[in-house]
Simulated scan of single mutants.
Amino acid sequence: MVPLAGGEKIKAGIIGGAGYTGGELLRILVNHPSVDIAFIHSNSNAGNFVYEVHTDLFGDTALKFTDVFNYNIDVLFLCVGHGDARKFLEANPFPANIKIIDLSQDFRHTEKSSIAYENLSGDNQPATRNFVYGLPELQRGAIKKADNIANPGCFATCLQLGLLPLASKNLLNSEVHITATTGSTGAGQSLSPTSHFTWRNDNLSVYKAFDHQHLKEIKQSLKQLQDNFEQDVNFIPYRGDFTRGIIASIYLNSDLTAEEAVKLYTDYYTSHPFTHVTTRNIDLKQIVNTNKCFIQVQKKGNKLFIISIMDNLLKGASGQAVQNMNLIFGLEETAGLKLKAAAF
Results as ranks from 00 to 15, higher is better:
residue 244 R to K: 10
residue 113 S to P: 09
residue 186 G to F: 01
residue 233 V to C: 04
residue 19 G to T: 14
residue 18 A to M: 13
residue 322 V to R: 13
residue 266 T to I: 00
residue 235 F to L: 06
residue 177 H to I: 08
residue 224 Q to R: 13
residue 303 K to I: 04
residue 126 P to I: 13
residue 272 H to Y: 14
residue 12 A to K: 13
residue 150 A to R: 12
residue 188 G to A: 05
residue 203 N to D: 11
residue 303 K to G: 08
residue 85 A to S: 10
residue 259 E to V: 07
residue 284 L to A: 02
residue 182 T to A: 08
residue 4 L to S: 11
residue 190 S to F: 10
residue 33 P to V: 07
residue 96 A to K: 12
residue 1 M to T: 12
residue 280 R to H: 10
residue 315 K to M: 06
residue 310 M to L: 09
residue 33 P to N: 03
residue 272 H to L: 07
residue 167 A to M: 07
residue 256 L to I: 01
residue 319 G to V: 03
residue 154 C to K: 06
residue 339 L to I: 05
residue 129 R to C: 01
residue 9 K to V: 04
residue 85 A to K: 09
residue 153 G to S: 08
residue 83 G to A: 07
residue 322 V to M: 06
residue 2 V to P: 10
residue 332 E to N: 14
residue 297 V to Y: 14
residue 195 S to G: 03
residue 73 I to K: 11
residue 47 G to P: 13
residue 86 R to L: 07
residue 19 G to Y: 08
residue 309 I to F: 07
residue 87 K to V: 07
residue 88 F to E: 06
residue 318 S to L: 11
residue 26 L to H: 14
residue 32 H to L: 06
residue 96 A to V: 03
residue 22 G to K: 02
residue 13 G to C: 01
residue 139 Q to A: 14
residue 148 N to I: 03
residue 181 T to M: 10
residue 112 K to N: 13
residue 113 S to R: 04
residue 146 A to N: 13
residue 195 S to L: 03
residue 100 I to E: 03
residue 172 L to Y: 08
residue 75 V to I: 13
residue 330 G to S: 03
residue 157 T to G: 00
residue 65 F to C: 05
residue 192 S to V: 01
residue 207 Y to M: 02
residue 321 A to P: 08
residue 295 I to W: 14
residue 29 L to P: 08
residue 15 I to S: 01
residue 327 L to P: 01
residue 126 P to S: 06
residue 130 N to Q: 09
residue 144 K to W: 13
residue 62 A to V: 14
residue 184 S to C: 10
residue 160 Q to P: 06
residue 89 L to R: 08
residue 300 K to I: 12
residue 16 G to E: 05
residue 64 K to L: 12
residue 115 I to H: 01
residue 4 L to D: 09
residue 111 E to D: 15
residue 137 E to P: 05
residue 65 F to N: 10
residue 339 L to Y: 11
residue 234 N to Q: 15
residue 325 M to L: 14
residue 311 D to T: 09
residue 162 G to M: 04
residue 137 E to Q: 13
residue 49 F to R: 07
residue 207 Y to C: 01
residue 173 N to P: 01
residue 5 A to S: 09
residue 155 F to P: 01
residue 95 P to W: 06
residue 54 H to S: 10
residue 314 L to P: 05
residue 139 Q to N: 15
residue 66 T to G: 13
residue 5 A to H: 09
residue 295 I to Y: 10
residue 105 Q to M: 13
residue 143 I to P: 04
residue 136 P to T: 04
residue 188 G to P: 07
residue 26 L to Y: 00
residue 68 V to D: 12
residue 112 K to V: 00
residue 98 I to M: 11
residue 321 A to Q: 00
residue 179 T to Y: 06
residue 34 S to I: 00
residue 317 A to W: 03
residue 254 S to T: 11
residue 337 L to W: 10
residue 141 G to Q: 14
residue 57 L to N: 11
residue 120 L to N: 04
residue 171 L to W: 09
residue 55 T to R: 05
residue 61 T to E: 02
residue 113 S to T: 05
residue 45 N to S: 12
residue 268 Y to M: 10
residue 170 N to K: 15
residue 192 S to N: 10
residue 11 K to Q: 12
residue 117 Y to V: 04
residue 41 H to C: 04
residue 331 L to C: 01
residue 117 Y to R: 05
residue 264 L to C: 00
residue 112 K to P: 00
residue 3 P to Q: 01
residue 217 E to F: 06
residue 36 D to P: 02
residue 215 L to E: 02
residue 116 A to Y: 05
residue 236 I to P: 05
residue 76 L to W: 11
residue 320 Q to P: 05
residue 51 Y to A: 05
residue 187 A to S: 15
residue 160 Q to Y: 15
residue 223 K to L: 01
residue 71 Y to W: 11
